[in-house]
Design a protein around this nucleic acid. Structure first.
Lengths: 331, 331
DNA sequence: TGCGTCAGGTTTACCGGTAACGTAGCCTAG
DNA sequence: CTAGGCTACGTTACCGGTAAACCTGACGCA
């Protein structure tokens, strides 16, 4: 790690400022000088130092931080992918973190990240500690809150309403004649958004005079197992349900597996609905009734909102991305 | 973004060096001074500048870069999670990138990342462009190559042998009496490691006098659909196979779905084997025959190897993590 | 001839930390 | 009584870029 601008400057017989301009593709030098500088830079194996660049000019940081609830979530993996594709194309670097559904962990992460003076941040959810919000405002870094829509974002927001997702599914299941609905979730209070879906679901059912009959919320991760055993627990306690809404598709698929194992006919004896739109769900023998979330599009939109802001374009404060209820054959 | 060490120093009536020492938890100051400095720092809302710290001392970078083939891969999500848990606990920040199974894209990513002077890098696979290897050696950054084991790593390596995975599965299926095996894969040449598994698989079969009968390798992403349609194509062309080895579990589950849709009995008419160990696979009506890869453990081990190196401990050059063949009920 | 303008540079002054070294005052051992 | 060591600081130099201001010769033109 030896060659720096000074070394190149000396070897090329120019000042390091000229080298800097050449390597950044600026103006104010002849073609001849440019070729010479570039040749020397290559010969010396010059590796640029973005640390110095970002530090010195404090305008040039190309770091973007993104915090997701869990890195193992299939849905967020697609959001991350959408963000990364959009940003890496423009030369930004993505720093990631997981908050494990805890605003305190998010705060700790934000505290670490802002000390790198990132160009922007992408956070998941609308729930943050007051200290986090204060800090973000203080350092005045562009922030995009994704996933859960908020009408009063810290800065920008890209997402949809989880409450509406739940409500829409409730209406759909009512139209299909379901009257005794149950719910199987996970993570308890830690997942605010799953909670919001449940609330929307419940509100619609109650309004129609067919309120939620029973629910089972596990403390486990919301995966196949939790869905399987969650449904088992729920049906053992309350056998006469005619439909169960699950926290997400992974759990719903677990529920389907349980129903199949027990000879419960779906959807005749029991309806099953999920949320999220996992790839696996669509090739099951029976297409899962679920709400498909445009994950990659959310990531792309968040990245684009951030980049627009960085370029000085005003951009959209709040971007609503549409979810899509897929009727399927299990509801 | 106003307060810096100088401001705190002035307000506390000490030099900024003392402030630096206090805030980093060093020594060489009285309790009284420490309390005063910390109080002032909090009052001024001091946000440390790691850019300046890393740039100035060029020892303190806490950035670690990690490059995976695809961010949407469930297996790599767990590796990422393992790395992140291990590193974030120690105060490191993770910068990620995806190479889309292309060494050229990996090189572009490495070129970007090294200019941030990271403390270390984690790369997926043992295949890199010569320029990448040169660059990594030149900047002398600690590197861990994960996933595919290599006996001559750039620096350190954590993984297992994909060839052996394929060979082991081949032996297992032979023991179960299979003699006419097929293979369904994806990504063609782009995925070197899937290729290695296939080679191990083929070698064992050939040696036993029951060579691979047919194979179907799609250009698609290795997911459920590819498995479903890949098996359809394969069986249409070569109906009399008695077992099919899939690129991974996602595809194998797609294959199972196809078999079920067509009334093919598994494992009586056709054996199905996958690779990777996805969570979903274990709760299917029939437990999938597959090789479980300790993803999180690989991430953890990679992070630990890196940290050990950074602390100056010698650490292991090559760490082998064991995979586990799960017999299941489909093979 | 004198002056403005422009291309093609150079010079200077930082950015905010940290390492390395310096130093004053006090304590203690020989 | 004093050399030496320790504590608790302060001083200085530097990391490698970039912004902004400045320079200079050539050319066009009134």
């Amino acid at each position: 790690m030896k060659a720096n601008l000074e070394d190149i400057a000396k070897a090329a017989g120019v000042s390091k400022m000229t080298v800097s301009r050449v390597l950044r593709g600026g103006t104010g030098f002849s073609d001849e000088t440019r070729d010479r500088v570039i040749k020397v830079a290559e010969r010396l194996g010059y590796v640029p130092n973005k640390l110095a660049a970002a530090f010195g000019s404090y305008q040039a940081s190309t770091l973007v931080g993104m915090c997701v609830p869990r890195l193992t979530s299939g849905l967020f993996a697609h959001v991350l992918d959408g963000v990364d594709r959009a940003l890496s194309r423009l030369g930004y670097q993505l720093m990631i973190g997981a908050n494990n559904h805890s605003t305190a962990e998010e705060e700790a992460w934000v505290r670490q990240i802002v000390s790198w003076r990132p160009a922007g941040l992408i956070l998941s959810g609308r729930n943050h500690t007051p200290a986090t919000v204060d800090l973000l405002r203080q350092v005045a870094v562009p922030v995009v809150e994704i996933w859960d829509l908020t009408t009063s974002p810290i800065d920008m927001s890209v997402g949809f309403s989880h409450y509406d997702c739940g409500a829409e599914m409730g209406q759909f299941l009512l139209r299909r004649g379901r009257r005794r609905a149950g719910y199987v979730g996970a993570l308890a209070r830690a997942d605010v958004m799953g909670q919001a879906r449940l609330e929307g679901f419940q509100a619609v059912l109650a309004q129609a005079g067919a309120p939620l009959v029973d629910r089972e919320v596990l403390l486990d991760m919301p995966g196949f197992y939790a869905g399987y055993y969650g449904l088992e627990t729920l049906l053992t306690r309350t056998p006469d349900l005619d439909v169960v809404y699950f926290h997400n598709d992974d759990m719903a698929v677990g529920g389907l597996a349980y129903a199949q194992a027990k000879g419960i006919r779906v959807p005749e004896d029991l309806g099953i609905a999920g949320w999220g739109g996992m790839e696996a769900a669509s090739i099951l023998p029976r297409r899962l009734t679920t709400t498909v979330v445009p994950t990659t599009a959310i990531g792309k939109a968040a990245a684009e909102a951030l980049v627009a802001r960085l370029k000085g374009e005003p951009g959209q404060e709040v971007t609503v991305v549409p979810t899509r209820l897929v009727p399927g054959e299990t509801g």
